[in-house]
Design a protein around this nucleic acid. Structure first.
Lengths: 226, 226
DNA sequence: AGAATAGTGTCTGTCAGACAGTATCGC
DNA sequence: GCGATACTGTCTGACAGACACTATTCT
């Protein structure tokens, strides 16, 4: 442990970036290209750079900008992880964020870099993960789940236009359990709500062999923060 | 800004320590005895010491131990505050915690130090506060409120033995609004719950000119974490 | 007896899950 | 018409607020 580690901790930001792939929730993992824990998989992250970062959230956005071509996914702090042993380089803090990537622009948003990247099922990532990133992913997923459990709609994960069934399947993927259709629609479409979270566009989904569904969009100033 | 500030941020922990005074919620403020912002009031806090702190929560407990003679109040992370401008000493991070002090042992738990201390109403502290501590206090209070709004019982604020009315008044003080007695009791005393949060002791409150109330205690392994 | 709070019984509205039934499209 | 999904109507049980009523102690 270097001397400075006894005065100043290393400060990192780590991000659990979620997206929907069809009807499955996924999270982005990267394979570390450097020591320590080289070749291990983990959440994308990086060290805080006080010289260029305005705050921790800005640091997280900077780290994300190296992975993703769109900015402004929903980004929210979850909690911190800290201690002398979690990173071999010394006493460290990681501030964990989770981010939600919107649906449609996904195809073109990922930029390949020196590291390998992979979208995996957050409930069973299928890799042994570096540092305490396994615990971090669990915390991030729990935070997302709890929000949806509290009836917040994960609209930041949706494409610009979506159907109610799509939205319901997204919630079900996050919660890991089926939802009742009637109850879901009643909740999401309150008849006389002055500020409904979602707005009917007036178009219908075409090109499918079933009855076409109404398309909706998120309210202009919708926020996933309670 | 010193050179090291461009590589390493200063890392602080700040704590909003809540207690009940009769039926009012209070938070502990301290008057700063040092520059910067000397004589301004703020939340108790201190710098992280990697050499002696096992993690950020341990740092918060260490800081609290200088103010309070009991340990183990409920301590929980709220969020972080960060940036180059919030402390004149340079780029800094504060990790905010809130803590709940149990009811009865309060009288003897406060230790006077070099700084003046004061218990104030968290909703209107009555002092202009140092740094961004005003925003921090607001966040901590909101976090506490939301937990109680989500039906978690703030049992860590209660004395070892308490009546249902006392508990209800505590919830009302936190929420800032009255609660219905019938609904509150129904919620708190589910007839056939295998794991109720509170347990009837069997004693009654004596020495009052009204009908004596049943006394309750918190379940052995009760946790305020959801 | 009276004051004061503890504790209960019951009505009513809201809202959830459940489930069956109807609607509307492509083929 | 058939298949598939969109959407609706309605029943039922859980639970919340409201409120009046009863219970039990001290003075």
């Amino acid at each position: 442990m270097s001397f400075s580690r006894e005065l100043y901790p290393l400060v990192f930001v780590d991000i659990a970036l979620f997206r929907m792939d069809e009807d499955r929730l996924q999270v982005l993992l990267v394979q570390r290209a450097q020591e320590p824990e080289i070749r291990r998989w983990g959440l994308p992250g990086g060290i805080l750079k006080p010289a260029i970062d305005d705050n921790l959230e800005a640091a997280a956005r900077r780290v994300l900008s190296a992975k993703v071509t769109v900015d402004l996914p929903h980004l929210e702090e979850v909690c911190t992880f800290s201690g002398p042993g979690r990173d071999p380089r010394g006493w460290s803090i990681s501030v964990l964020f989770y981010a939600l990537l919107p649906g449609n622009p996904v195809n073109a948003v990922l930029r390949s870099k020196v590291e390998a990247v992979e979208w995996v099922d957050p409930a069973s990532p299928g890799h042994r993960m570096a540092f305490d990133h396994s615990a971090q992913l669990e915390k991030a997923l729990t935070a997302l789940k709890q929000k949806v459990e509290r009836r917040l709609l994960p609209l930041h994960l949706m494409p610009p236009k979506f159907t109610l069934s799509q939205l319901q399947r997204t919630c079900e993927a996050i919660l890991g359990r089926p939802l009742d259709k009637t109850a879901f629609r009643r909740r999401v479409l309150p008849k006389e709500d002055p500020m409904p979270d979602i707005v009917k566009i007036g178009e219908k989904l075409e090109g499918r062999p079933e009855r076409p569904a109404q398309l909706y969009k998120a309210r202009e100033d919708f926020s996933f923060i309670e």
